[in-house]
Design a protein around this nucleic acid. Structure first.
Length: 479
RNA sequence: CGGGGUGUGGCACAGUUUGGUAGUGCGCUUGGUUCGGGACCAAGAGGCCGCAGGUUCAAGUCCUGUCACUCCGACCA
């Protein structure tokens, strides 16, 4: 640290205070601003552009899978919300209510949607009649409101943007397949596009979605060793269908209940990106969703021919990449730091010396590696560099995850390992009882994140009670 | 919801103990010199001190309330 000059003084070092570092990045990289309502953030153009890019990719993939977009109202009458017992109980503590229209008190208060299962169900009951109406594969992009007690930008805000898929199927098998299909879609998106390794798994009974038969999730490990639930996919069975009286006539002329799923990812993903890839210089964005993929920084731009050349390169690159040319009066050094803070994956430096040699300098954000490339093959070189950034940050995140994943056989071991090596994923066996699940959390501080799809330690004894184990569970401190 | 911390030009903060003309640095504007890792000089502009009450001749400062941000817990995507 001694001989390394700290370039970005404004950002708190992640080693000193990870939480402060996180909020510094959110503000300093121009992602958000705070509003005057607690927990409601303003997404600024740069932050919102990340969401738009995420949205675009996912929306295409949903549609490839046969899903259609719809839009449901944002208000849910109290009576409708209450139709499914577990569901209300799960969400009641955090719903916001509308009680007045103008000066008139409403006869029935309206809930601002915390999620839209009930609305979709009410609608499905109206439109599903026959097996020919199935499956229904719907998705909506919207915001939802959950009145959280403590809030953090992207990770937990009171209003947040997300997509919620809601599907209805003739058979349980088909619905279960859909649940897993969408979970896999999320996992692929995280790994390939966001460059974040994830663990796919099923939630324990106590942790599953209110009203679901089974909840699946992808869990990612952040840089500080805490886990983040990054996406969920639920299988509902026919529980909601029964509660909302959704039926269809099957081929054999029998009346049946359809089977249902829902799945969602939210702007929380942006939090995951920040905490997976960011460093002390600022944000590091995966190329797939970076609002600016290449930033062109002219050096000595007052000298003849530099800006002309920079503009020419911009015109060329803009055909293949999201490109920005910064020809502002700020010094080159200032610009270097600025775009590092904003996490732009590839920087292109072009100055008089380069122009003379028909070259430019490409710098990759995650490792600051500089490469001199010929302008003749610029487009390909940039494409290669973007690929290197994606692979580089994925490997970094994977290394962090592996380094922080521990196998433990006893409660004592969990405590010691976490103390000695820091927070992370703990793989330990569990008997399946809620009592043991609670006890592990109480004594060691780590809660169950999921039962991974890939079970590695099959047989053995529960880390808590010593009885024969049923599952290998992934435990961690969570966001 | 419990416990701590913080609200003062755009940003970071000092000033609050002991009430008495609102400050510093950065940024911003204009002009000039610079330009390959956050340049420099000069002259300017910009603040009902989070909000609402109260005490006082006088409140950024004291009192009451309230809102927001932030950190640590419990709950949650």
């Amino acid at each position: 640290m001694a001989d390394e000059k700290k370039l970005v003084k404004e950002i708190t070092s992640m080693d000193d205070d990870f939480a402060k570092w996180y909020t510094d990045i959110c503000k300093k990289a121009d992602l958000i601003d705070y509003s005057s309502v607690k927990g409601c953030i303003i997404m600024r153009p740069y932050g919102f552009a990340i969401w738009e890019n995420i949205q675009k990719i996912l929306d295409e993939r949903f549609k490839e899978g046969g899903h259609e977009n719809v839009y449901m109202p944002m208000f849910i009458p109290e009576s409708l919300l209450q139709k499914e017992k577990d569901h209300v109980e799960g969400f009641a503590p955090e719903v916001a209510w509308v009680t007045h229209g103008g000066n008139e008190k409403l006869t029935e208060r309206l809930c601002v949607r915390p999620t839209s299962e009930t609305l979709f169900c009410e609608h499905f009951a109206n439109i599903i009649r026959s097996y020919r109406d199935l499956p229904k594969l719907y998705n909506q992009w919207c915001s939802v409101v959950r009145w959280e007690k403590t809030t953090r930008p992207f990770l937990r805000s009171r209003e947040f943007l997300w997509q919620e898929g809601h599907t209805m199927h003739a058979s349980a098998e088909e619905a279960e397949q859909e649940t897993i299909r969408q979970l896999n879609l999320y996992a692929d998106f995280f790994e390939n596009d966001l460059a974040i390794p994830v663990i796919k798994g099923r939630k324990t009974e106590s942790d599953k979605f209110a009203g679901a038969v089974a909840t699946y999730a992808i869990e990612a490990l952040m840089h500080d060793g805490k886990a983040l639930q990054a996406g969920t996919s639920h299988y509902f069975g026919d529980g909601f269908a029964k509660a909302f009286n959704i039926t269809y006539t099957d081929k054999d002329n029998k009346l049946r209940y359809p089977h249902q799923t829902s799945w969602g990812v939210s702007t929380r993903m942006i939090g995951a990106i920040i905490m997976s890839h960011g460093d002390n210089e600022g944000l590091v964005l995966p190329p797939a969703i970076a609002p600016i993929q290449v930033v062109i920084l002219p050096v000595a731009q007052h000298k003849e021919g530099v800006l002309e050349k920079a503009n020419e390169l911009k015109a060329r690159l803009a055909k293949r990449f999201r490109t920005k040319l910064d020809d502002s009066e700020n010094s080159a050094g200032w610009k270097f730091s600025e775009y590092e803070m904003k996490g732009v994956p590839v920087r292109l430096e072009i100055g008089p010396r380069d122009i003379e040699k028909n070259e430019c300098v490409l710098v990759t954000r995650h490792n600051r590696e500089k490469t001199v490339v010929s302008l003749d093959r610029l487009e390909d070189a940039v494409a290669e560099k973007l690929k290197q950034v994606r692979d580089g940050i994925y490997q970094k995140a994977l290394d962090n995850c592996n380094r922080r994943t521990y196998r433990c056989d006893s409660m004592e071991e969990i405590k010691t390992v976490l103390k000695e090596k820091g927070d992370g994923f703990v793989k330990a066996l569990w008997c399946g009882s809620e009592e043991c699940e609670d006890k592990v959390k109480e004594e060691t501080g780590v809660g169950s994140r999921c039962i991974p799809m890939e079970q590695e330690l099959i047989s053995g004894r529960c880390v808590c009670c010593g009885r024969p184990s049923r599952y290998m569970v992934l435990w961690a401190v969570a966001y």
